[in-house]
Computed example of a mutant assay.
Amino acid sequence: MVERVQATPQALSLIAKLTDQYGPLMFHQSGGCCDGNSPMCFAQGDLLITDADVKLGVIGGAPFYMSRAQFEYLEHTQLTIDVAPGRGGMFSLEGSHGVRFLTRSRLYSEGEFDSLPPVESGVQA
């Protein structure tokens, strides 16, 4: 089954370390501005998720969200979360480890796109 968001082994390893350090995590794909277009990692509950967000999936046990407006531009794109040396978003938890999460993407094939389940609302009932 094709996922909307997935993570490399390096990202999964870092997510596990951050979970040990901070407890349950969550991700939000930044839409630009101060932190560029990068996945931001937070302790679960440290970022308010609203119905203006959608949940794309789960990586390393952490839910992954994006604004609904940004999703409209990227819905045909699979996101792969990876890790690279350097500084990421200033509020993202991985910064103290000297690395940053980054998003790699690719377009789905027509068959893959047609088989994807709908995204969930960011606010869960």
Rank of each mutant, 00 (worst) to 15 (best):
D51V: 08
A52P: 04
A52K: 15
D53Y: 02
D53F: 04
V54H: 03
L56D: 02
L56V: 03
L56F: 02
L56Y: 01
G57D: 08
V58R: 00
V58W: 07
V58M: 08
V58A: 01
V58N: 05
I59N: 01
I59W: 01
I59H: 02
G60M: 07
G60E: 03
G60R: 02
G60I: 06
G60Y: 06
G61C: 06
A62T: 02
A62S: 08
A62K: 00
P63N: 02
P63Q: 02
P63E: 04
F64C: 00
Y65L: 01
Y65A: 01
M66W: 00
M66E: 05
S67C: 05
S67M: 06
R68V: 04
A69W: 10
A69Q: 11
Q70T: 11
Q70I: 04
Q70H: 13
F71G: 01
F71W: 15
E72Y: 07
E72A: 14
Y73D: 14
Y73A: 13
Y73L: 15
Y73V: 13
L74D: 13
E75M: 15
Q78K: 09
Q78S: 11
Q78D: 01
L79D: 05
I81T: 05
D82M: 02
A84C: 06
P85M: 07
P85R: 09
P85C: 02
P85N: 05
G86L: 05
G89R: 02
G89Y: 03
G89C: 04
M90Y: 14
F91T: 10
F91S: 08
S92K: 00
S92E: 06
S92D: 02
S92Q: 03
E94I: 06
E94L: 04
E94G: 06
G95P: 05
G95S: 12
G95M: 04
S96P: 06
S96E: 14
S96M: 10
S96A: 15
H97M: 12
H97S: 07
V99D: 04
V99R: 08
V99M: 09
R100D: 01
F101G: 03
L102C: 11
L102A: 08
T103R: 09
T103P: 02
T103E: 11
T103H: 07
R104W: 12
S105W: 12
S105C: 10
S105D: 11
R106K: 14
L107I: 09
E110V: 13
E110A: 14
E110H: 10
G111V: 13
G111M: 09
G111W: 07
G111Q: 14
E112I: 08
F113K: 13
D114N: 13
D114V: 10
D114H: 12
D114C: 09
S115L: 11
S115M: 10
P117F: 03
P117V: 11
P117C: 07
P117E: 12
P117L: 11
